[in-house]
Design a protein around this nucleic acid. Sequence first.
DNA 1: ACCTTATGCTCGTACCACGAGGATAATGGA
DNA 2: TCCATTATCCTCGTGGTACGAGCATAAGGT
Lengths: 393, 393
Amino acid sequence: MASPVRRRAQESRWHTASQVLAWLRLHPGATRAALAQDLQLSSGLATELTGRMRALSLLAEAPAPPQGRGRPTTVLGAHPDGPVVLAIDLRMADWRHAVAGVDGGLRDVTGSRHVSRDPETVLADIRRVIAAVRDRYGHRLRAVALAVAGSIHDGRLAQSATLGWRDVDLTALTAGGTVPLLPGNDATLAGLAEARTGAAVGARAALHLMVEVGIGGAFTVDGQPSTGAHGAAGEYGHQPYGNRSLPCPCGSRGCWDLEIDGRALARHLGLPAPADPRGFARQLLDRAPRDTATRQALEAVAGALGAGIGGLVNVHDPDVVTLGGLAAPLRAAAPEVFAAAYTGGLMAFHRGQPPPVVDAVHGDDGALHGAAVLALDHVTSETALAEWSARPH
Amino acid sequence: MASPVRRRAQESRWHTASQVLAWLRLHPGATRAALAQDLQLSSGLATELTGRMRALSLLAEAPAPPQGRGRPTTVLGAHPDGPVVLAIDLRMADWRHAVAGVDGGLRDVTGSRHVSRDPETVLADIRRVIAAVRDRYGHRLRAVALAVAGSIHDGRLAQSATLGWRDVDLTALTAGGTVPLLPGNDATLAGLAEARTGAAVGARAALHLMVEVGIGGAFTVDGQPSTGAHGAAGEYGHQPYGNRSLPCPCGSRGCWDLEIDGRALARHLGLPAPADPRGFARQLLDRAPRDTATRQALEAVAGALGAGIGGLVNVHDPDVVTLGGLAAPLRAAAPEVFAAAYTGGLMAFHRGQPPPVVDAVHGDDGALHGAAVLALDHVTSETALAEWSARPH
DNA sequence: ACCTTATGCTCGTACCACGAGGATAATGGA
DNA sequence: TCCATTATCCTCGTGGTACGAGCATAAGGT
């Protein structure tokens, strides 16, 4: 615990080290010479910093293969005894987890299907995994991030149509331990992953939209998602873009959600609401080319998707929009309809150079990667580094 | 000009000084002792910092009136030779400007009506004022911020329904000089002012919505507005919340704008679109109590306002929502309808503690104050302080 | 072998932050 | 009037990061 008086000096002490680790995650397998050049470190400072961080097990250096003339440099990587985080992605039918070191690489990616979708059972499973990882890594485990397909509010899972849960306390997962638990909405974290290592790399402001059951997303600026006051931001599916006569399970009416996912497709086809909207939509996407009615339903949905995205671009003014989950195949099913609705929804001055709408690159791994990013951001923060350095190594 | 190599040291050198000036603006007329306590500065550091900043004309100290026992402290304020900024608010019928020092206080608030609304004429007027202020303050003038009732895109005024302008280059206003021009949307800057010194003080995340002609706003996190990639964020009026059959001057259809302002009121009353939607709405608000049809029109608008705000709360998850311009009286005209639509538009888990919707406190001065905040943020940044200190005094 | 190139290391300097100890300037009571 | 009390300011020695110059080192090229 840093004394409050020493606060400013403590933090500035780890400022550059934190920058180094952030840079390392963006450039895995990079050399020390490249680090010094990118961050404009003097060679003296690079020596001192890497030395200090090596001594603290924050960094490992290995001789780099010589490339041309000059003294060979070293390759930077995570230290074998360095801090690690646990990333968990809790989805409708299954959940997965992985361990990551400060270089951002995911290790031990493991998954298993839910035996029961009952909250108590699932949370007990997760608690078991956390305990197992803590047993294996000991004090090296510094944070656990949990991506959930539902709305997060002050550390609680407020509601999840996907899982059928309502107001589940997640903080209890690491209660008793000292490891912080960082929960996040799955679409928000997938957006974070796209911004850092995905289709939105290089963009200052990026909007990610993900369709599974309903539509969610994240707006990131300089790689930081806008989380709002209680971590509940990004619920784009619950904007009144739709038909006011349709009630939404969220409690509101006319939500965009209802115009986008499998429920909307079923409605357009005159079918009852499917139990598994995601699976239903996937089926339709597969058989679309052969079925006119299905194609028309997909066109309606693609249009609703494009028009809404146009409105969101007006609100957020992103450099780029990324599509995750079913959003990408939905657009691909009716690209002209989507494009017309998208540009039609933009304010005139955006139409000269509309932000490109690109498919996400992380696929189903987005939320898991994003959870790792969230946890590693926490671990490589200046205060967390100060804490880590206070322990013996 | 700082050499790139010295960047890190230069910035950290001014880090605390920048914090001091930021704090001073939030606590005008505060004492040095209070500064040291709030920022947890050791008394030695407070001495050194204030001394350095006094020598650089960044700060003035005057003996504080003694209050009880103990050695009297000093009151901090802007130095009489310190840096200043020029804030300008360009509105439909008139424009105003003011000079501000680093303590944030607005001086010489002046206004004048447009003789002509022709862009060239108005911009020439503004150029004249900038030149006059520069003549008077010389190198002390460090930034000019310009609030405009229109959409900003990469430093240009992309379109303004209010002024009837389209794609006007604003950067030319200070061309030739070295003073940076910082343009901003008026609603965005009003939101900034509310977040720093208005109704949203203390909130981490705040949403400001302002109705004049159409509706615009700003989402601020920790006092920083989300500006997007090109400074065009916050165009809430151009989300497809409304009736798709209505074309909007922005080029899209069904914009929220068309459901909220004087044009919506006229439509509900079966009247043609008014030339001055703002004045028209003001008239109706005045005579509402005596006229049933008007009251019903106002109720429809208040409902559309509340429902949209509910959707935006789902998106942004703010701590508080502030209403500027006509938004406050529109709500007041039908508070029950507004409240029902607002909570009805919220996702269920927000309804337990919905973010309070409060009236803005800056009134018509919001954009001008926000422009001053924007300019002063620039001037008290670490790099700007480094530049200032490099000059002789 | 020697030069060239690229990088790492050492060390003196500059500067901010910190904390302890003492100085200072007011009040208020004896 | 004098002195204790209180709150603040100032001085100074220490610690720590960043910087840059100069030198050392380890390769490839000639």
